[in-house]
Computed example of a mutant assay.
Amino acid sequence: MTANKGVKITNFIKTHKALTTDIVLVLIGLIDWIVTRNTIATSNHFFMLGLALLLIGVIFVLERGHLLTGWFKRPAKGEEKLPQKKIDVHKVGRLKNSPIVITRPAKYFLHVGIFTIVMSILISFI
């Protein structure tokens, strides 16, 4: 029976990664508070961690943003390098106007980052 219980816990962790991370962060915050005995320091640690996680999430969102589309045109194999090669503006416009894509890692980091910032605000009220 214990093996079945372990499988259930493992499946829960795999399906709810952000929630599991939130629980671990609360435990780490509790340990941080026990060590420092200062709620403001613990709140500051949570806030800085949240900002870092939000930054990572934003980087994952911008990764799929096609920010540099149209700037660089690499010649195809066997093609000569021309100094003034024209870029298809319609293709570049279609790519740049495509909707924002939020990938799974971006959702994860944004969720955990927002959670830690909210936790830092709640801790500072204590």
Rank of each mutant, 00 (worst) to 15 (best):
D88L: 05
L62D: 04
K86F: 02
G65V: 00
I59F: 04
V61M: 13
L95P: 03
K81T: 14
K73S: 08
A52L: 15
K91W: 04
L82C: 00
K77F: 02
F60V: 00
R64L: 13
L55W: 04
A76P: 02
T69S: 10
R64A: 14
V58H: 02
L53I: 02
K96T: 12
R64W: 07
A52C: 10
L53G: 02
L53D: 02
P75G: 11
V61Y: 05
L54W: 00
N97H: 12
A76M: 10
R74D: 04
K81L: 15
E79F: 01
K96W: 09
I100E: 09
G70E: 03
E63W: 13
I59D: 06
G93M: 05
I59R: 12
G70L: 06
P83V: 15
L54S: 03
R94C: 03
R74Q: 08
K73H: 09
P83Q: 10
K91Y: 09
L68E: 05
W71Y: 10
P83L: 14
G65S: 14
K85E: 06
L95A: 12
K77V: 05
S98M: 09
A52M: 14
G70R: 04
E63H: 13
I56N: 06
I87P: 00
G70K: 02
L67V: 09
L67E: 01
H66E: 11
G70S: 03
T69E: 09
N97K: 09
P99C: 13
K85F: 01
H90K: 10
V58Q: 06
K81R: 09
A52E: 07
A52P: 01
V89G: 00
R94V: 14
K96H: 08
G78M: 10
A52N: 06
Q84M: 12
L67I: 14
G70W: 03
W71S: 05
T69Q: 03
E80N: 12
I100V: 15
K73V: 13
G65C: 01
L55R: 01
F72N: 08
K81M: 14
R64M: 11
L53F: 07
G93H: 03
G70T: 06
G65Q: 10
I56Y: 10
S98F: 05
V92S: 03
V58L: 09
F60M: 01
I56V: 15
K86G: 00
F72S: 02
R94Y: 08
K81N: 13
K85Y: 04
L68I: 11
I59K: 11
P83R: 08
K77G: 00
H66F: 13
G65K: 10
W71K: 07
K96Q: 13
K77E: 13
I56A: 13
A76D: 11
L51G: 11
E79P: 03
A52Q: 06
E79I: 04
I87A: 04
K81A: 14
I59V: 15
F72M: 09
P83S: 10
E80S: 14
A76F: 10
V58Y: 02
L51A: 11
L82G: 01
L53C: 04
T69I: 10
E63K: 15
V92R: 05
V58W: 02
L82D: 00
L62H: 01
Q84T: 13
G70Q: 02
H66W: 06
H90E: 13
K86L: 08
E63N: 14
